[in-house]
Write a protein that binds this DNA or RNA. Sequence first.
DNA 1: TTCGTAAAGGAGAATCATTCTCCAACTATG
DNA 2: CATAGTTGGAGAATGATTCTCCTTTACGAA
Lengths: 152, 152
Amino acid sequence: MPTVETPVESMVTAFRERCRASGLALTHQRELIYRAIVSSKHHPSPELIFDEVRRQTPSISLATVYKNIHTFLEAGLLREVSPHHGSLRLEANLAEHHHLVCTRCKAIVDLDESELEPIHLSRKLRAGYRILRYTVEFQGLCPACTDALKTT
Amino acid sequence: MPTVETPVESMVTAFRERCRASGLALTHQRELIYRAIVSSKHHPSPELIFDEVRRQTPSISLATVYKNIHTFLEAGLLREVSPHHGSLRLEANLAEHHHLVCTRCKAIVDLDESELEPIHLSRKLRAGYRILRYTVEFQGLCPACTDALKTT
DNA sequence: TTCGTAAAGGAGAATCATTCTCCAACTATG
DNA sequence: CATAGTTGGAGAATGATTCTCCTTTACGAA
């Protein structure tokens, strides 16, 4: 009689199917990397994933971890937590406002607080957290990139 | 008769006062760097600020730009657009959810969509943008860091 | 104003994250 | 199990950021 799959296992199963559907070879390393990310309760960096995965397969290379992370991001199997992590980006506008981030050209446009209704938490936030502020990050395409993709 | 200050000039004036109040020496380079950021309509990277500032003072060093950005961030004169830009951070959870980011230890915790009321835009977003999704980034302190700061 | 001192700047090396190159090993298939 | 096309491994290369070390500057006191 079949055992109920744990959430991690069912995600790994789905992962295998999606690899097959996308024509991605199902290698030992890929499954380890994906499994490490799914199993993590945090939002691990490539370096952390590498450390984890290396415990199972010490010969794995950091470059392999990076390559597969990008492969998985393109296939939509993973998501990047920060839409603009590559380089420090600064602003002097200290008023509450939000951001529109173009996923293609990485432009960031301000959206004033007044353009949005206030956000309400429907439950008390977890005990022990001290929330100082929030920002809404909208992801999408800016006008120039919307056009560029139409033309292509 | 006094001229009305432009927004940029009034921010630079406030900047000078806040430097004095914080005991920061008011150098030529600092004012140039701050002015470059305030004048930018985008959210510039250190490299872009350097390029801009170098047009006025070709001898300025990139290290000076970085050092002062950090000084300004600590003094609360600037804000970092991304709360976690240093390294790629990943997640396999593709469902809509939000993040609590600890500004001290950089931990990122998930907050389910159901813990928040839906967000409504009170006006039509700027024409030409194509919004795909949004994420609310809450910034604050996690329980461990809240305790750590109490003790210190 | 001039000076002394602490703070800040400049140049380039060092470090850290990420990507690339190139060749060997492996997966999927027949 | 042979083969073609992917993928993996190792280390060099690149890009962003920080550090080191020495020189210059800002600014309060004389």
